[in-house]
Amino acid sequence: MHHLEVDGLTATYDGKILVLDGVSIQVGKGEIVSVIGPSGSGKSTLLRVIMGLLKPKAGHVKLDGDEVDYGNKKSVKALRDRFSIVFQQFNLFQNMDALRNVTIAPVKIRKRDAQKVEKEAIELLGKVGLGDKLHSYPDELSGGQQQRVAIARALALRPEILLLDEVTSALDPELVNEVLDAIRILAKDGMTMMIVSHEMGFVREISTEVIMMDEGKVIEVGSAEQIFDNPQTSRCQDFVGKILRH
């Protein structure tokens, strides 16, 4: 039994074009699964469907063997209690400072003890290198700093699985590493993650498994070495070839 099991997931925005077309993925506890693929291949959509932002048309998602019912609010809520997602565009709450961005959901939504949450939030922000920015607002932070707040915010919810959707692609090159470093620390702590990324060097270094997607389908699954050095499908060879030549 896998920690997270996605099976035959199919989704569409307009009812016609299948943006996801029978995607199956397994993630074990403590694993880091990266999803790569060309723009428009459905990587973000996959994460959105898993999080319940877009209802799947067919297929299912299982958590520790229990199937998620996306038509049922309680079931979706239970799922969201166990997952956190960080988006490409940080999506911080603009009207709250860094600390409150991190504490609001645990305190107001999960009803945890405010003082304990705050202590934990300060630690988390310290861990991502923002111990001195607790009271800065998003518009006073750089993109990299905002993204690190977003990661701290996601972690404050104590997720069992963290989904990261191109968390560095909206950043200036010199800010990318500070965010990747924050993720490296999580990896060392054994966090289970599903990562969508265009940072191939990073993907290669950190992933337990790499999944290559195209046109809504999983094209190839394998270790980082297989996908990058010895891809089995021609589509994957093309894609990896193009990227590595850049």
Binding site: G52, R80, F87, A105
Partner: peptide
């Protein structure tokens, strides 16, 4: 109001009313 902020709130478990109270109105 940024739709993406509301989406983030939704995935964090905010109900519609909580989104209104904590995100939309202050914004």
């Amino acid at each position: 109001v940024h739709k993406t902020e509301l989406e983030a709130a939704e995935t964090m478990g905010f109900t519609l009313l909580q989104q209104l109270r904590y995100v939309i109105v202050p914004h």
